[in-house]
């Protein structure tokens, strides 16, 4: 297993441990009085499940830590160099991912505030243009056409609500 995979597992293990612990605390705080019945206590299933998840997250963390220690012993482990870190943080893929997430967030935030067809046309055109800088006219035509089509099919033909 590579160092980056071990790092990923460690981060995932810790994140899951935190989430499971929060659920566990929530389950413990749920009322246990007679109104809810001794065995039908609402927190009993979340308690059991979160305990199970805490145990599994701990196994994942300890397993990863053990592997890291073994790898350190086996090879002369050195932390990733600054250039490696920089590559990871500024990789094109990461940049693209952030751009997509930001665009999607912006689209969702503006939903309901701007007319669906206008907002969706702009969203589709901009996002497509950022990643495919060719055939601008086709991109614009496709974006507007698709937005109108979605609006009419969902809202006018099938009478479904549209944000």
């Amino acid at each position: 297993m590579t160092t980056s995979n071990l790092k990923k597992d460690l981060i995932a293990g810790v994140a899951i441990l935190i989430v499971a612990s929060l659920f566990l605390i929530g389950a413990l705080l749920m009322p246990k009085d007679n109104i809810y019945g001794l065995y039908a206590y609402p927190g009993i299933t979340p308690l059991a499940l979160s305990l199970g998840l805490v145990v599994m997250a701990l196994v994942l963390i300890f397993r990863t830590v053990n592997k890291t220690v073994l790898e350190k012993k086996a090879t002369d482990f050195s932390p990733p160099s600054q250039s490696e870190e920089k590559n990871f943080l500024t990789s094109v893929e990461l940049k693209r991912l952030v751009v997509v997430i930001l665009f999607c967030l912006g689209y969702l935030l503006l939903l309901g505030k701007i007319h669906f067809v206008v907002l969706t046309s702009i969203f589709l055109a901009l996002l497509s243009f950022i990643f495919y800088r060719k055939q601008v006219l086709i991109i614009i035509a496709t974006s507007v056409g698709t937005s109108i089509l979605i609006y009419y099919v969902f809202n006018r033909i099938f009478l479904l609500p549209i944000p």
Binding site: L124, L127, P161
Partner: peptide, 20 residues
């Protein structure tokens, strides 16, 4: 159809399908 044109459309469909 290039992926950068297709995928944003799919996202809009996901949004509309979920909202509907």
């Amino acid at each position: 159809i290039p992926t950068p044109i297709l995928m944003p459309i799919v996202f809009s469909l996901c949004v509309v399908g979920t909202y509907a």
